[in-house]
Amino acid sequence: MAPVGVAILGSGIFAREGTSPVKPLVKAIYSRSEKSAAGLASAAESTLKLSAKPDIYHDGDSSANLDVLLARSDIAAVIVVLPITTQPGIILKALAAGKHVLSEKPVGKDVATGLELIKEYEEKYQPKGLIWRVAENLETETGYQAAAKAIRDGKIGKVVFYNARVVNYINRDSKWYNTPWRTVPDYQGGFLLDGGVHTLAALRVLLPSPIKTVSGVASLTKEFLTPQDTINAVVKSADGSHGLIELTWGAPTPSRSERAFNGITITGTNGWLSVNQVKVVDGARPVGGLRTTIQIAKRDKDGNDIGETEEIIDKTTDGVPNEIRFFVDAIGGSDNGLGTPRGALRDVAFIQAALNSNGSPIDLENLLGL
C-alpha cells in the first residue's frame, strides 16, 4: 500500500510527543496560531531528519487556513488532536472534505454529543467508504490484547469478578494540567473523562462481557481539578460478573499514587490475572511495558487444590504506533475492528453514568439508547 498523505490538526502535547510513528507521512500541520503550527513542523523536521518541513496552516492567514488544507488532494487523512469540545466540528468538517479521520479520545464530551456525531458519520460518510477511528491507545496495546486472549482461551476459567485502580497525582506544574482547555474544562468530569476513558477501554478489551450497570460516587479532592477528580464505582457486566473501579487524579502526594498498586485484576473460577505497567528490559535498555501475570489453580483428579502455576507475559508499550498503523490499514481495506467510535462511546457512557449516579444504579444500555 502506498503511503497515505496525512495532516495533523492540533499542536498540543500529544501532537508533539505521541504521533512520531506517523510523522514520516505528514505533509501538513494545522493549528490556530502560526507559532504553534511552526513549532510542531520544526520538531518533526528535526526529529525525523525530513528533507522538507511539513507545510504550515493556521487561522491567521485565509490563504493557508484549515479549509485550504482540507482541499488538498494529496492529503487523504487527518489526525485530530484538539480540545475535547472543539473536535466534533472539525471531525465533521474533515469528513465532509472527503478525508479519513483519526481523532483523539474521547469520542465526545458526553453521550449525546457522541451519538449525534456517530449517527451523522454512519449515515453520510461511512457509506462513502470514509474511515473514522478514535485514538484510544490502550485498546490497541499488545499487552492488553495478550491478556484478553488468555481470558478467551479459558486460562482463568469463567470471569467472576474484577477490579481496576488508577490513582494519579497531579499538581499545578504538571504538563498535563498546564494547557488552557484543561485548566478551565468545559466538559464533564475534567481529567476523569479525558484520562478515565483509557481504563474503560482497557476493560472493554479484557472483559468477555460488557459493563452494563454502574453505581458510582464522584467527588472533588483538589479544587484546581474541577469539576470532579475522583470516582469510585461498583459495576456489573451483562454476564453477571461484577467489579470495583477506582479512578482519581486527586492523590494528595506522589507516594499515594506510587504505592497504589495501579492496574487491572480479573478473577475467574480457575485463577486470576493482573495487568500492570512496568519497565521491561529490551536488551540493555529498560522501556515502558505491560506485564500480565497469570495465576492458574492446579487441582487433582478429585478437584482438590494442590497449588498454582504462574505465567508472565511482558509486552513493550506500543498502543500509539498501533492505533495509527491500524487506522492506515483500515483505509487500505484491512480493518481489525479496533478503535471504532461506538466502542469509544461506551467508555464515555461509563464516566457519565458514574458522575451522575450518586450511588443509584444506571443502565449503560439505556444511556446509549440500545
Rank of each mutant, 00 (worst) to 15 (best):
E123T: 07
G60K: 08
L192V: 05
E258P: 05
I313S: 08
I84A: 01
L290A: 08
L117E: 13
N137E: 13
A38K: 14
A202G: 10
A97V: 02
K315R: 15
L40M: 07
K23D: 12
P185C: 04
T142N: 08
D55R: 15
I296R: 13
I296G: 00
R16P: 01
M1H: 13
I131H: 01
Y177A: 01
R152L: 07
T47M: 14
L82Q: 10
G195P: 01
F261V: 07
G12R: 09
G303T: 03
L9Q: 05
A97L: 02
S215K: 12
D59Y: 01
I211H: 00
I118V: 04
L92I: 06
D300S: 08
S219F: 09
A297G: 05
E122R: 00
K119Q: 14
D153L: 05
K27R: 15
H58I: 05
I56D: 00
S274W: 06
E141T: 12
I170G: 11
D335A: 06
A150H: 05
L206K: 05
R291G: 03
L345Y: 02
A94Q: 03
R256L: 13
M1N: 12
T248P: 07
F191P: 12
G195L: 12
I118A: 07
V101P: 01
T265Y: 10
L368E: 14
K27H: 10
G307Q: 08
T47D: 09
D55I: 11
Y57T: 06
L244M: 11
G271P: 04
T340W: 02
G307I: 01
R32T: 15
P321M: 05
P286W: 01
G271D: 00
S62L: 12
G89S: 07
D347Y: 09
H100S: 06
K49S: 07
W176L: 10
D363N: 13
I312F: 09
D314E: 14
I266G: 00
R256W: 14
K49A: 06
D302N: 13
D59I: 03
Y121Q: 04
V22C: 10
L345F: 03
A2L: 13
G196K: 03
A43I: 15
A41D: 02
P341C: 08
E365F: 12
S31Y: 02
G114P: 10
Y144T: 04
I266W: 04
Q87W: 06
A64D: 07
L355D: 10
W176E: 02
T269C: 07
V166C: 10
M1T: 10
T183Q: 15
L48I: 11
P341D: 13
F14I: 15
I331R: 12
R342Y: 06
V278N: 06
S215T: 09
G307S: 03
I296F: 05
R285G: 00
E310C: 07
Y125C: 00
L355R: 02
V167N: 09
Q228I: 02
T317D: 10
P208L: 08
Y125S: 02
P54M: 06
K27I: 03
D59A: 15
G189S: 04
D74M: 06
A37T: 11
R291W: 14
S63W: 01
V205Y: 11
I156N: 08
L290Q: 14
V101Q: 03
T140H: 08
R182M: 14
P21T: 11
G307M: 07
A76T: 07
